[in-house]
Design a protein around this nucleic acid. Structure first.
Length: 216
DNA sequence: ATCCCGAGGG
DNA sequence: CCCTCTGGAT
């Protein structure tokens, strides 16, 4: 599978990486957190919710439940009320309680720093695990494929897949591991600021010259 | 009406 | 593969 098409894709990937790096030299996670525990909780809450909204509820949440041990013993109704405005609050409360209980039972109350242990936690999939491993520990285990990364990867012609794990495999094959963490943050930032789902601002997009405008 | 840093279940 | 879960913003 190293034909002409593959070379073209790699060249496209390198151009995307260069343009994003020039546009967002210091892109980083915009969820507020002070520890791996807080980042994991914030990331679980970020499903189908803006990070601005997540950052509105986490100060009170972390004050009330400062670590996994405290969260494991939380009253469900109180927890649901604290996170209600982030949406999917029943599912998220179930995930947070289950996650915290497993962290206490199997990891001594500390958030584990490896992919298998993280994805074994209730409510934690590859996207969330990649965020925590990459942002909290600088471990390049993969590319964070959320709604923005999915959309931009398709529009930029980096993948034709729809499934998040298949998209991640394509991106991992196209970009060097050393670029995965920053690339994730930059794609997400560009998706929020410029390449929005409904009305992409192609007129002020720094990637317009290399974008095939798939789906636009 | 559509989208937001998804995951679990059928 | 599909569906469901949810509130808030646009």
């Amino acid at each position: 599978m190293t034909g002409h098409h593959n070379q073209e894709l790699r060249a496209r990937a390198a151009a995307v990486d260069a343009a994003l790096t020039a546009t967002y030299p210091a892109a980083t996670c915009e969820l507020s957190y002070r520890s791996p525990y807080e980042l994991l909780v914030a990331t679980i809450l970020s499903a189908q919710c803006t990070d601005v909204r997540v950052n509105m509820v986490t100060p009170a949440l972390f004050a009330r439940f400062p670590d996994a041990t405290a969260l494991a013993g939380a009253d469900r109704a109180e927890l649901e009320e604290l996170i209600r405005s982030t949406g999917f609050f029943r599912n998220k409360a179930t995930s947070l309680l289950g996650m915290a209980q497993v962290v206490v039972e199997r990891h001594g109350g500390q958030i584990p720093a490896d992919m298998d242990a993280l994805t074994a936690l209730p409510g934690v999939g590859r996207k969330t695990a990649n965020v925590v491993l990459g942002t909290a520990w600088g471990l390049a285990t993969g590319v964070v494929v959320d709604t923005h990364v999915s959309r931009l990867s398709q529009r930029l012609g980096l993948t034709r897949e729809r499934n998040a794990e298949k998209i991640e495999r394509d991106l991992m094959a196209l970009f060097p591991p050393s670029s995965w963490i920053d690339l994730s943050h930059r794609l997400i930032l560009h998706g929020r600021r410029v390449c929005q789902a409904r009305k992409p601002a192609c007129d002020r997009c720094s990637l317009a010259a290399i974008c095939p405008r798939i789906g636009v």
